[in-house]
Simulated assay, not measured.
Amino acid sequence: MPLTNESVIRRIHRELLDHSDEELELELLEDVRNLDELFDEHADVDEEKLARRRYFSELFRLQGELVKLQSWVVKTGHKVVILFEGRDAAGKGGVIKRITQRLNPRVCRVAALPAPNDREQTQWYFQRYVSHLPAAGEIVLFDRSWYNRAGVERVMGFCNDEQYEEFFRSVPEFERMLARSGIQLIKYWFSISDDEQHLRFLSRIHDPLKQWKLSPMDLESRRRWEAYTKAKEIMLERTHIPEAPWWVVQADDKKRARLNCISHLLNLIPYEDVEHPAVILPARQRHEDYSRTPTPQQGRRITCSRLCALRF
């Protein structure tokens, strides 16, 4: 369906409100005492708010399962690598944020590598990614990965034909080697439509909080949509192996994509509940000869005058 100026403006406005409301709602939920009341579907709210409540209710449930998964990974020494690939603005960062939001960053960490420097360009192609692979009891999420060579590098001409073909010869063996070493490798491709990417780019252009996400490379990728499509199709066909298959996430609906991806991820890993010993807070030791050292006069105190001005 062709886009009209009115539909574009309405869509961008909804995108901006959705982003702002979600960040605010996440903060408010931290202080909620009665989640049952918050997620009561019989409350007097409109359908849009009811859908948001259902979304957050399911998101919280899945994040609770991710915490259980984390405990199991630590206990068993399981090693997990998850690759997130897709076009610019496909929603990779959003799902990564929701996965890591409640987890220990020492257990679950994100690897988002910048463009290779001059030295890295002379290394074995996979070398700079190897140092980010997990040890026992760790989960690593790659926000883009070694598949840059099959995507952006191919389309933008950052690699030659020989390097491109060598990548396809090497990557299946590299990933099989990871599997043999005990690493569970999970690969997600986030798929969005032409119109949806167009609208998300417009949203970023008009949102001061998101403009940093747009780079000249992103804008050029928009122009080369068809070249990226061809590169993606070749990549999926030539690197879909039994040891590390590709999973495609339909991502035009951001919230549905997040829930589907997290739910699917949980189903791929055979985690179980881990019993934890009861935590008992020990009594604080007190000594008669202890006195708290006063703050040095040189230290600058933070006054609350400006903070008070921010009260609603």
Rank of each mutant, 00 (worst) to 15 (best):
H264C: 07
E237Q: 13
E243S: 05
P242W: 01
T293L: 09
A244V: 04
D289C: 02
K232F: 08
A278N: 08
C261T: 15
K230E: 12
D252E: 09
P277M: 06
E272I: 05
M235S: 04
S291F: 14
Y271L: 10
C308P: 08
W225Q: 01
K230M: 13
S263T: 13
E272P: 02
T303C: 04
R238Y: 06
R300T: 11
P282V: 07
K230V: 15
D289F: 10
Y290H: 11
R286N: 11
P242R: 02
A251K: 00
A231Q: 04
L266S: 01
M235A: 09
Q285D: 10
Q298V: 12
H287T: 10
A257M: 00
V279E: 10
K230D: 13
V249D: 00
T239C: 07
T239E: 05
T239V: 04
S291W: 09
Y290M: 09
A244G: 06
E233M: 09
K255N: 13
I241C: 03
V248N: 08
Q285S: 08
Y271A: 14
Y290V: 14
P282L: 07
R306K: 14
A283G: 12
S291N: 11
L266F: 03
S305A: 14
H276K: 13
R256I: 10
V279D: 05
A251Y: 01
V274H: 04
T303I: 06
T303G: 12
I302P: 00
R256K: 15
R258G: 04
N260T: 13
V249I: 14
P270S: 06
Q298G: 04
P282Q: 07
K230L: 12
W246I: 05
A257G: 01
T293Y: 02
A257Q: 04
S305C: 12
L307W: 12
Q285A: 10
I234T: 14
I234Q: 13
R284G: 12
